[in-house]
Design a binder for these strands. Structure first.
Ligand SMILES: O=c1ccn([C@H]2C[C@H](O)[C@@H](COP(=O)(O)OP(=O)(O)OP(=O)(O)O)O2)c(=O)[nH]1
Ligand SMILES: [Mg+2]
Length: 1098
DNA sequence: TCGCAGACGGG
DNA sequence: CCCGTC
DNA sequence: GCGA
């Protein structure tokens, strides 16, 4: 795989930052090969020049020379030295070299050789293995090289200089870095002579003007790690919310708790009745006055920070903390959830409720495709949104908020203005998702087990009980599925507590039992019952003996405890999980119970831990770690040294464990009583088949060659993003060539990637740009090299739709094959989603005035071609999904999409932008389109060339579409035609001016007022949003009175498209008349639109 | 680019 | 080591 | 997906 330059630099960057001792291999060869070609990438140090890529034909079994006077970083050189001592590699037998096509002569095998950053022998072994399987690392010019892939910024001169050769031999192909990407995308060896792939052969003087691009890039780095099983319980019954005017009953100890023996007043103030709001105030004051570590993580803040003000008490959280302040100096940084009061009550009418709900859906979506991190981002963003007391309307506004970046800001704006988020359209749940959710509800079952079972065909609990391999816990989990998923009324929790407490008391009066968890936070219902068991002065060891030898047996004997699920066994064990039920009632439900053994000196930490909630814990623990400390259930630790990847190197020294309050204090967190620690939770609905969207949307079948360990797959329109656990075994992706219906494969060998948290499993995120709709290959035939593309052959004589030969496992998915008829001519799909911008247009927007300074203009002028445009080309490939969606549809006789057969619903439709230009009527004045479009129904043709104009005519002209003309006549002037001639090229714009008179002659006079010539102001974003992507193509839009795009067409009209346009116009006219009759719409258009804008949900 | 909390128990 | 859970 |  070849990645974008920016990604390459990101990797280089990561190398550079390695500690000295960490050997890392710089030469990362990423590459794909076909028919014996091999591409190996040569790395160069940051800042000196761009990387070059070398393609070698050399499939040799010998290792290339690894040493050399490469201009690589010190770190790398060192590592190379080390590696020299190693034994020569033993190449795997050819049949096992993963880079060979093997069974599939046409398969494209792809090597992804990422720098290894681990010096462990095992890791190094893996690298060696990779090389044994065919990886070749070329660092210098050698014979047998067939291709050189160079970054576009490099010139010919640069390359030969770098390679220390006089010239590049004729038989060596020189292409830019886009070439291999496209080859992989198209699965074809593309004609390298296409201008698109040319490397600048220019004179050296040009080189000087070329500055190396910034190492920073917008390319999103993805990472996935172990999936979580969040919010497992199904929350039958009301969610956790303490009673509003609670008398702090949640703080009560279990009845009969003896409190005398405690030396410190710790208990009484913190978990006893006395913890009233007075105590809270005191605690807060105390915290404020006491010397504490600053809240902010900002170094400079540590000096200037004021003591934190507990803004909860006066509810003054309204102010929006500005990002600038936040990241700047001297600002407070209260972005930790634990710094604020969370009582579980949302504001009565949260102005951002709809936004929050929609973002929550997105979060759910990411959760269920097992993206570990985005849900965290969403959770944080939602939390800040909750705090706002006014509605966040615009992206600008939104991105000022902490944890809301540009992408979430965009989404927020879209939600506000359209009451809808398009990204969610493809994320609906299906039956297998429901099943997954059901199985996940089983205690002891997570994503891994649930998906496995589903893929094995199990559908019911009966299936599982009868046939599946179950652990003891899982069996119990199934048998008591309903019980365990039912929340427990607070009163019953108390009864359970009474039993445990009295039993404990009878064993040893010194024993203390406290109900923790949601109960301590004052919840009305609890998912389980959490007991903390302590005894003043007792060690865990002592407690454990009491628990295991006396308390537990006694509780079993009373028929209270029913089963143990996770039982403390080791010497340092501290927990006992099981199930209980109230004795005496036969049908009493089983309840989950947890016991936590806590020695006195760990009381405070344990209280914090076991009180939760989980989000609060994570927040306060993160805060601790940001201060160089560590908080866990045993205590607060300082001087914790963390190594690379934040791995803990030392456990640190204990600061405090006994006092809850003191720990808050040391952390600089105002004390929060338990009922104020209910931080935002997230919900989710799981899905079973993570790549299912891909199947539907793209026809790409993804199969797993064993053992891929795919931990998350996201489909964005027609791309796959997948995160693959890095292992030595390749993942194979299957495609279908739509022309031939032949299955073909890419195999990706991933050697190493980023570390995941907490264990050193590595995950590697595949570049999304690599997996494109195979149709793309068909759409861009103009750049295919026919001599090579036709050489693919069917694998092993299989019929096109047969399963790949090596597919053995039942859960491998189905065979590729999606088109019924491979020779069917490709037609673009009908528009599947509304086009347009999320915000209503206003006159005065997009006038396109250049605001750059002169210096900027000069710089842009000099750099433009070499710099911006090329970068754009690269980044566009991996930018927003919407864009990618369009680029894939670009070709096909200019038709970008088929019209939508039915109008887009008004509440889903998006807006046509305001454009600014002159009209044929008044060529010397600037005119906005919006006033012309508003408050009437418009058929807008937009085009950039006469060719395109003619295409648009096929939809709207009287000759081509007489029915439309008829409909226009009948409409009594409610429907108007508008033409927009776009010419952004300054020269050609001049030509248009020249031709104006002739155009004026050509166009009937009554249309002059609505024939616009637009010369600037149409940004990429606008083009993308309205699908106006190809200057050679004409587009037609049907707008309603609010300038919403209800229908759109492109290219030459097809019969059914003309019909749908006519139908659409008639419908809109009907709609219009009906509203007129209802008197709903009155006169002034601007006001109407404005009013709608202000209340989009209305 | 890296981190997103930090631990325990089962198998 | 991985999974599931608190 | 955000923040540093
Ligand atoms: O991932 C987790 C889960 C829980 N806890 C702590 C906080 C929590 O309050 C306590 C008890 O866990 P439990 O799962 O019982 O949650 P709860 O807060 O008691 O809510 P519920 O009503 O669902 O039991 O353990 C964590 O620190 N991390
Ligand atoms: Mg609980």
């Amino acid at each position: 795989m070849l990645v974008s330059k920016s990604e390459f630099f990101e990797r280089l960057y990561s190398l550079d930052n390695l500690p000295e001792g960490d050997a890392k291999e710089l030469s990362e060869a990423e590459l794909f090969l076909k028919q014996g070609r091999k591409v190996v990438r040569i790395g160069r140090p940051i800042g000196t020049a761009q990387p070059a890529f070398v393609v070698s034909e050399n499939m040799s079994n010998s290792l290339p020379e690894k040493k050399g006077k490469s201009r690589v970083t010190k770190t790398v050189t060192k590592s190379l030295g080390k590696r020299k001592k190693e034994l020569p590699l033993q190449m795997a037998p050819e049949s096992r070299q993963v880079f060979k096509g093997l069974n599939f002569s046409h398969a494209h095998d792809l090597l992804d050789f990422i720098p290894n950053n681990d010096i462990s022998p095992a890791r190094r072994m893996r690298i060696r293995k990779a090389m044994e399987h065919g990886a070749v690392w070329v660092k210098e010019w050698t014979d047998g090289i067939s291709h050189i892939v160079a970054d576009k910024y490099l010139t010919y001169q640069d390359i030969i200089k770098y390679l220390k050769i006089r010239s590049i031999p004729d038989n060596v192909v020189l292409v830019n870095e886009i070439y291999p990407i496209d080859c992989v995308q198209h699965q074809l060896i593309i004609k390298p002579s296409h201008p698109y792939y040319q490397v600048d052969k220019g004179d050296p003087s040009q080189t000087e003007a070329v500055t190396p691009s910034a190492t920073k890039s917008s390319h999103e780095s993805e990472d996935h790690s172990l999936p979580l099983k969040p919010a497992k319980r199904r929350n039958i019954g009301p969610p956790e919310t303490p009673p509003r005017n609670t008398e702090l009953s949640g703080l009560k100890l279990v009845r009969q708790l003896p409190k005398a023996p405690l030396r410190q007043p710790l208990f009484s103030t913190q978990i006893g009745h006395e913890a009233t709001s007075d105590a809270l105030d005191e605690a807060i004051k105390e915290a404020q006055e006491s010397k504490h570590l600053p809240i902010s993580t900002d170094e400079e803040d540590e000096l200037t920070m004021h003591p934190p003000v507990d803004r909860d008490t006066d509810e003054e959280e309204a102010e929006i903390p500005l990002k600038k302040l936040k990241s700047g100096t001297g600002a407070k940084n209260n972005t930790f959830q634990c710094m604020h009061k969370h009582d579980g009550h949302d504001r009565e009418t949260n102005p951002n409720a709809k936004t929050i709900a929609t973002l929550q859906e997105m979060s759910d979506y990411y959760t269920r495709i097992q993206d570990q991190w985005r849900p965290i981002a969403y959770r944080r963003a939602i939390a800040t949104l909750r705090k706002q007391d006014r509605k966040i309307m615009t992206a600008e506004e939104a991105s000022q908020l902490p944890f809301v970046g540009s992408r979430l800001a965009q989404k927020i704006e879209e939600i506000v203005w359209t009451n809808h988020l398009r990204r969610l359209d493809n994320t609906k749940l299906d039956d297998s998702d429901k099943l997954l959710e059901k199985f996940l509800g089983i205690y002891g079952v997570g994503f891994a087990q649930a998906s496995k079972w589903i893929n094995q065909g199990y559908r019911t609990f009966e299936d599982l009980l009868a046939h599946a391999q179950l652990t003891d816990n899982q069996r119990i989990g199934i048998e008591h599925y309903e019980d365990f998923n039912t929340r427990i009324p607070r009163a019953e929790v108390g009864e359970h507590g009474d039993i445990v407490n009295s039993t404990a008391h009878s064993i040893d009066p010194q024993l203390q039992v406290v109900i923790m968890g949601s109960y301590r936070r004052g919840a009305e219902t609890c998912g389980d019952i959490d007991f903390m068991i302590t005894k003043p002065g007792a060690s865990v060891y002592e407690l454990r003996n009491i628990l295991l030898d006396e308390l537990i047996p006694s509780l079993f004997a009373q028929d209270f405890l029913q089963v143990g699920l996770a039982v403390t066994s080791r010497m340092d064990g501290t927990k006992w999980h099981g199930a209980s039920r109230l004795p005496g009632h036969e049908g009493a439900q089983w309840r989950r119970v947890d016991f936590l053994l806590v020695p006195t000196e760990e009381m405070g930490a344990a209280l914090i831990y076991f009180t939760g909630n989980d989000i609060f814990n994570r927040s306060i623990r993160l805060l601790a770690s940001k201060k160089g400390m560590r908080l866990n259930q045993h205590g607060l630790w300082k001087d914790v040294i963390r190594g690379r990847n934040r791995e803990r190197m030392t456990q640190g020294t204990l600061l405090e464990g006994g006092s809850e309050k003191r720990i808050f204090e040391l952390l600089g967190v105002p004390y929060r009583p338990p009922e104020h620690r209910i931080c935002a939770q997230t919900t989710f609905h799981p899905v079973n088949e993570y790549h299912r969207g891909a199947n539907r949307a793209t026809g790409i079948r993804v199969m797993k060659s064993y053992p891929p360990r795919i931990t998350g797959v996201e489909n964005t329109h027609n791309q796959l993003k997948r995160t693959v656990e890095v292992d030595f075994i390749a993942v194979r992706y299957w495609f279908v060539n739509l022309l031939t219906n032949e299955p073909s494969a890419i195999r990706i060998l991933v050697v190493s990637g980023r570390y995941a948290k907490q264990d050193d499993r590595k995950f590697y995120h595949r570049s999304p740009s690599i997996m494109l709709d195979p149709r793309r290959a068909l759409l861009s035939q103009s750049i295919l090299d026919p001599s090579l593309s036709s050489s693919t052959s069917s694998p092993a004589g299989n019929s096109p739709r047969a399963s790949p030969p090596d597919q053995k496992n039942a859960d491998n998915g189905s065979a590729p094959g999606l088109s019924k008829d491979g020779n069917e001519e490709f037609l673009p799909k009908p528009l599947g989603r509304p086009l347009g911008l999320p915000k209503p247009p206003k006159a005065g927007q997009n006038v396109g005035i250049d605001t750059r300074t002169w210096r900027q203009r000069r710089d842009d002028f000099f750099n433009y071609d070499k710099h911006l445009e090329k970068r754009k080309l690269l980044t566009k490939k991996i930018s927003t999904p919407y864009f990618r969606e369009w680029t894939n549809m670009r070709y096909y006789k200019g038709k970008t999409f088929l019209s939508n057969p039915k109008l887009f619903r008004a509440d889903r439709a998006l807006y046509f932008p305001n454009l600014h230009g002159s009209t044929l009527l008044s060529p010397r004045h600037g005119n906005d389109t919006t006033p012309v479009l508003q408050d009437k129904i418009s058929i807008v043709s937009i085009f950039s060339s006469t060719w395109a104009e003619r295409q648009a005519q096929t939809f709207v002209s009287e000759r081509e579409n007489p029915e439309l003309s008829a409909a226009l006549q009948e409409s009594d002037g409610v429907v108007g035609r508008v033409d927009i001639n776009v010419e952004e090229n300054a020269l050609k714009a001049g030509l248009i001016r020249l031709f104006m008179p002739s155009i004026r002659r050509r166009i009937p006079r009554d249309r002059h007022r609505r024939y616009f010539v637009v010369r600037r102001g149409i940004s990429e974003e606008i083009r993308e949003a309205i699908g106006f992507l190809n200057g050679k193509v004409g587009y037609v839009y049907l707008l309603d009175g609010e300038c919403k795009i209800r229908w759109a067409g492109s290219g030459r009209a097809l019969r059914e498209e003309k019909d749908s346009l006519v139908r659409g116009v008639r419908r809109l006219v009907d709609e219009w008349r009906r509203r007129r009759e209802d008197g709903a719409v009155v006169g002034d258009t601007e006001k109407t639109v404005e009013a709608k804008a202000a209340a989009p949900s209305a």
